[in-house]
């Protein structure tokens, strides 16, 4: 059993459609902590001690947010800057996060087809997420393929519901160690093929 921490960042949550449903889908799960950064720090005044205590207490760190300008919302960058201190999160003495898992859960306005060499975003999602991936590496964390919901401008309610259910399944899978991580690494996104990564494991809850 692992403890999951979801760091949630959405500056206009009240207008969110997809992220709201994703968050709702995992809200009631035991051993899953949801930490709404914009709600906790409307003034960007990150409480570093509190953040580091939270990180220490959990094994799977999820960064859940809309993919703004190919990156994280501003507060999550502020959080990275201040909470991931040298000598604590990284550096020769910084081992606090070593061995923990990191998952990015993002939603993009553009369709999957746009994130290709020939698409109008010119880079793949994995390429654009390289800074986060490398942040995880520097902190000696295990980086997981991202959970991605594409095309949020045109997505239907039924499709959102399906994505939310998949998200819940994956969070449970990570918490209860049901996911075949070797298999998952073969895919661009952790939610590309759920059957393949669960490999016959039964998901409860």
């Amino acid at each position: 059993m692992r403890h999951v921490l979801i760091l949630f960042a959405h500056p206009a949550f009240e207008r969110s459609r997809v992220q709201r449903r994703l968050l709702q889908a995992v809200q009631d799960l035991p051993d899953v902590t949801i930490h709404d950064l914009y709600e906790a720090y409307p003034n960007f005044d990150i409480d570093i001690d509190h953040e580091q205590r939270l990180l220490s207490k959990h094994d799977v760190i999820v960064l859940q947010h809309p993919f703004f300008w190919y990156s994280v919302p501003a507060i999550l960058k502020q959080w990275e800057d201040l909470a991931l201190e040298h000598g604590w999160a990284y550096g020769s003495q910084g081992n606090a996060l070593s061995g923990k898992y990191m998952l990015t859960a993002i939603s993009t306005g553009g369709a999957a087809a746009a994130y290709r060499r020939e698409g109008h975003n010119r880079f793949t999602i994995r390429e654009l997420l390289a800074p986060i991936e490398q942040t995880a590496m520097l902190c000696k964390m295990i980086y997981l393929p991202p959970f991605v919901v594409h095309g949020t401008h045109l997505i239907t309610d039924a499709e959102i519901a399906a994505e939310a259910a998949a998200y819940r399944q994956i969070i449970i899978g990570l918490r209860d160690d049901l996911i075949n991580l070797e298999a998952a690494r073969r895919f661009t996104a952790i939610n590309t093929d759920l059957e393949a990564i669960f490999a016959g494991e039964e998901v409860r809850g």
């Binding site: 800057d81 201040l82 201190e85 040298h86 000598g87 550096g91 003495q93």
Partner: peptide, 16 residues
């Protein structure tokens, strides 16, 4: 008071 905003400029990082 804790040394604030160390993430933006760390003495320890330079030493490292």
């Amino acid at each position: 008071w804790r040394e604030r905003d160390a993430g933006w400029d760390t003495e320890s990082l330079r030493d490292d």
